[in-house]
């Protein structure tokens, strides 16, 4: 288990504390997908370990996973490389996938539960979406539930001002957070999206991301190497904790051809 989770990040990737908010940020070229998969793995696997050990009597944790940019097939493939079978986990009521990509703009109503694509959101209306996600939360029957939302900012960007306001989105997020044990969000934090804030697209994105970042307990941010591209380094991961400033650190990471991720300190 320990070789699949990079040891330097192990303490941040386990089951988060109750009511905590963890944020993973990515940029173009430094995607957070591998880190999300590691998160999924360590949460779902920690439960399995606890089942084997006699000391922990608590029910194993489950995950509700909402993705706006990627479909279940992509995550399934990545998870299977880590030895995680998402299909059997979802049958066991430990995992529930909500697809916010393939059906979101089809103009339908509510959400639809499919076998191979998870629960597909059919409409971009916040109320419909909330109902779909809440149904997915009740699908997970095991103990503490972790809600992972991949690229919530995408939702804000494609619907913009009229349909989905940043405030309403934050409201929905809060009400969803009340119903789960902990929340993990991923955001794109590319410079052009945050710095100039000249258009309403950029302003609403910055408002959402900055508000969530300030509320977060832990932020793991990924970016490209500042000095260019190296063969054995994919990027930089920076860990920021709100309560423990001394725990903040910056490491390099490398994702290999086989999907193995290595995290190491600079200069080693």
């Amino acid at each position: 288990m320990s070789n699949k989770i990079p040891s330097l990040l192990e303490q941040h990737l386990g089951l988060p504390e109750e009511a905590s908010l963890t944020i993973l940020t990515n940029t173009l070229g430094a995607s957070s997908n591998w880190l999300v998969l590691r998160f999924l793995y360590s949460i779902l696997q920690s439960g399995r370990g606890a089942d084997a050990g006699v000391s922990e009597k608590e029910a194993s944790p489950g995950v509700v996973f909402l993705s706006f940019m990627r479909d279940l097939a992509f995550w399934r493939e990545g998870a299977s490389r880590l030895g995680l079978d998402l299909d059997s986990l979802s049958r066991a009521g430990k995992f529930s996938f909500v697809d916010g990509l393939t059906g979101l703009l089809s103009g339908g109503q509510g959400s639809e539960s499919t076998a191979d694509r998870g629960r597909v959101l059919k409409s971009g209306k916040l109320d419909d979406m909330r109902r779909g996600i809440e149904a997915a939360i009740t699908d997970v029957r095991s103990g503490p539930k972790v809600l992972i939302v991949d690229q919530l900012d995408e939702l804000l960007a494609i619907f913009g001002e009229e349909d989905v306001t940043g405030l309403a989105l934050e409201g929905m997020l809060l009400s969803l957070r009340e119903r789960v044990h902990a929340t993990v969000l991923t955001f794109s934090v590319d410079d052009p999206l945050l710095r100039s804030q000249g258009t309403s697209l950029e302003r609403s994105h910055a408002a959402l991301v900055l508000a969530q970042a300030h509320a977060a307990d832990v932020i793991l941010s990924l970016r490209m190497l500042d000095t260019g591209v190296a063969k054995d380094v994919s990027g930089v991961v920076r860990v920021t904790e709100r309560d423990r400033a001394e725990a903040s650190a910056e490491y390099l990471y490398h994702v290999g051809a086989d999907g193995n991720a290595k995290v190491f300190e600079r200069g080693t």
Partner: peptide
């Protein structure tokens, strides 16, 4: 090249296949 299909989605990949 700013990003490549599949390669960047996974966060990395084949060594030396992408040299900027």
């Amino acid at each position: 090249i700013h990003s490549l299909p599949v390669f960047h989605e996974k966060g990395g990949g084949l060594e030396g296949s992408w040299v900027k």
